[in-house]
Design a protein around this nucleic acid. Structure first.
Lengths: 255, 255
DNA sequence: CCAAAAGTGTTAGGGATACACCCATGG
DNA sequence: CCATGGGTGTATCCCTAACACTTTTGG
């Protein structure tokens, strides 16, 4: 079976499945961090010059949150990832530019006119925080291109996915939690400078080096490890690691 | 037509309507404030000893947020109300205790077995902030009892509505905004003490009288009006009013 | 020894907290 | 004139911002 034929088969199975909750979908804004830049992971539709946030549908007998995790896994092979619901998008016209329809036409897959894929649907938006260095493997069952984009250099996006990314980022900024964000977006070991650059990328503003260090250390959520020698002619920075919740010592309880 | 027959008619029309988005609903946690207590507005199902948060369905050609406002109006005759989405509830088992089914049985309305009302559905949760003193008029088209409940004395609730109320309250606490909450939950004019009691009810903890006053006044979002004489033998408190956004003078820009 | 970057110290200011005091009101 | 509750003043603490200084590293 050729690649194209396989894709067609997968797509056909998808729209003919009766087990999905109709008129409802899930979309997942995946944030990563690399070289001082905040990134989102996007997929490109086959044969179309449009990108989108990874999404999927909900089985009739599946919890919404489970469907989000499954969708994320199927589209990116990521599991055990920080995942949080942030907003449900329900404007009537949000799916007007119906990419799915074009896709089906391209592949000559016939779908009845009143099939729900042609109608409006409402999408529950999730965001995920993933370690950029771990996300090198992606499936190609839909033969979409999968790529990280800098948050400030997004390509043309399908539906209302641009708004989704913006709203997801705002949510991230507003509900900023040092431990959750740092421990999910950075590799296991990191320098203070890397951690600082992460927060600067998310907040979109510079922070003072020494004050940032003091503040984050006072939270007692980091463990200082060995020094990291880069070979450059300056003092070597320490590496740090986020403590597990069980390791965290709150000074208030230390007597 | 008797009351009961009318109710039956309404219910019948509801389930036979083809224009709703299937498997999806809206629920609205309505917060009010009265006599130093935070309240929620609940409806009682006819013939059942179960209460619920006002809810409704979404028309196929209707924006999600518009549907929430319409639902709120239909159930409570409230309009121009502060309304905000906070979470979408999608566990498979959340509607297992199917109140709708019992209701239909009670009224002897036959619905086909595979009608969506019998299946799982996902509900988008909104919360509303309303002035308790304005909410004296309610429709009775479903002949439900409509009543305010103290947040700490909730009756038995249908589905996962207890969880909804809790989650809505948490959202309110976390994203507390003095202006939005105060100006929607209090009448137009109020004393500083009333405002303080409102925040104490929401936060669930006592605040210091004088510090609270200083803090809220420093925000420059209040206008001091005439004194309010209660007849008691003590200094009369001022009345205050929230400024419109256009009236607010930010000290940073005053030169 | 020097430049570059990391780590630590030190001071000033703003906001929150806790306490105290004065003022208006009606009996 | 007194009890009561409302309004304002003030000292303290703590967190943060801003700046300065010391330490480490490889050339």
């Amino acid at each position: 079976m050729t690649e194209n034929a396989k894709n067609k088969q997968n797509l056909k199975e998808l729209v003919e499945t009766k087990d999905f909750v109709e008129h409802l979908s899930i979309d997942c804004v995946i944030f990563g961090f690399h070289k001082d830049k905040l990134k989102v992971l996007l997929l490109k539709y086959h044969d179309l010059d449009l990108w989108c946030v990874p999404g999927g549908f909900i089985f009739n007998d599946e919890n919404l949150n489970d469907a989000a995790a499954r969708t994320l896994y199927e589209r990116t092979h990521l599991s055990n990832v920080y995942l949080e619901q942030f907003y449900t998008f329900g404007d009537v016209r949000r799916t007007e530019n119906n990419v799915h329809q074009k896709l089906l036409e391209n592949k000559n897959i016939a779908v009845e006119e009143n099939h729900w894929i042609h109608q409006r649907y409402i999408s529950v938006g999730y965001f995920a925080l993933v370690d950029y260095t771990l996300t090198y493997t992606f499936p190609d069952s839909f033969n979409e291109v999968c790529r990280w984009f800098d948050i400030s250099e997004l390509p043309e996006l399908a539906f209302d996915h641009k708004e989704m990314i913006e709203k997801g980022l705002l949510h991230l900024r507003k509900n900023i939690d040092y431990q959750v964000m740092g421990s999910n977006l950075l590799p296991d070991k990191f320098t203070m400078k890397e951690l600082q650059h992460l927060y600067e990328a998310i907040l979109g503003e510079p922070l003072r080096r020494n004050n940032f260090q003091r503040k984050i250390l006072s939270l007692n959520i980091l463990e200082r490890l060995e020094k990291h020698f880069t070979g450059s002619a300056n003092k070597a920075p320490y590496l740090y690691r986020f403590l597990d919740n069980s390791e965290i010592k709150n000074l208030d309880f230390d007597k």
